[in-house]
Amino acid sequence: MDLSPLQSQLVNLKTQKNAVILAHYYQRPEIQQIADHVGDSLELSRKASESIAEILVFCGVHFMAETAKILNPNCKVLIPDLEAGCSLADSCAVLDFVQMRKSHPDHLAVSYINCSAEIKAHSDYICTSSNAVKIINSFPRDQKIIFAPDRNLGEYLIRETGREMVLWDGACAVHEAFSVQKLIELVQSYPSAKILAHPESKSEILKIAHFTGSTSAMIRYITESSADKFLIGTEAGILHQMKELAPEKTLIPIPTKEDTTCACSECAYMKVNTLQKVLQCLETESPEIILDPLVSSLALVPIRRMLQLS
C-alpha cells in the first residue's frame, strides 16, 4: 500500500512516540489505512483495554475515546477533534436519566455504548449493537429493564428478546434520516439485492431488512452470503472496509432524505477527523481526554460486566 507523505509522517511519529492509532469503520479511508486497529466500538474498546502503548489516538467520536480512557486510565488518550460528538450520546441528559432511574427503582439500566461517561457511571450494564441481545438474555426473564439512549435499538431489542423495557427517547440523527421512500425506490431498482440495516435504524427500515446487525456482523454477512448485491443502511464510511473485504460484491448505500445527490448516509461527526488533525494531535499531544477519576471508576463497572458477558 502506497502512503501519502502526510500518512508516512504520521506513521513515523506514531512509532517514535510509542502511540497506537485506533480508528472506527466510519472514519475516512485515508485514516483507516494508517490505523493500527480498525473496528466497531466494541472491538476498539477491547483493543484499548489491552493496549500497552503510552498514547492512544482515538479516531472516532468523543464517547468512544472516553470509553478507551475508562478502560485504560493510565494511558494518554487523544482525540483529533473534540467537536467529534455523537447526536445519540448528546441526547441523553444525566439529570433526566438519574430521574428516570429513580422513578423505576427495581429496573436494571442497560445503556448503549453511545453515551457519555456520566451515563455509563449511572448504568448497570453497557452494551453495543453486537452484544445487546446476548446481555439482555443473560438476565432472568422477569428482570425489569431500562434501555438508553437509543429508542430504535431499544424497540429492536424488545422484538428480539421479547422483554418489556422502559426506553429512553433518544435517536441517532444519521440513522433517523433514512428515508423509507428512497429505500423503496432503491429496492425496485435492485430487486435481487439483500437489505442490511444497523439496529439503530428506524423500525420501518428494520422491518423490511433481510439482516439486522452490528457493523462487524454486516461485514460477516456480506462475505458469507451467496448474494452479490447489497443495500447497506448505515454510514457510508463503512463501505470502505466492506469493499476491501468483499471486493467481488456490489455494495449500494441507502440514501438519506437530506442528501440525495451523494446518495449515502454520512455521519458528519465521524468525518470531522482528518489526517491533518490526527497528525497535529499526535504532535501536540492534545486535545486529551481527561476524566474525573471517580466518574471513570464508576463507569468501568458496567463496561467490565459487558466485556465479561460478550
Partner: peptide
C-alpha cells in the same frame, strides 16, 4: 445542575463502594 450532578456521582460512589 452541575452541583447536583456531581453530588449524584459522589453518592453513587458511596453506594457502589468506590470512594
Amino acid at each position: 445542575r452541575d452541583i447536583r450532578l456531581r453530588l449524584q456521582i459522589l453518592n453513587l460512589g458511596v453506594n457502589r463502594g468506590i470512594y
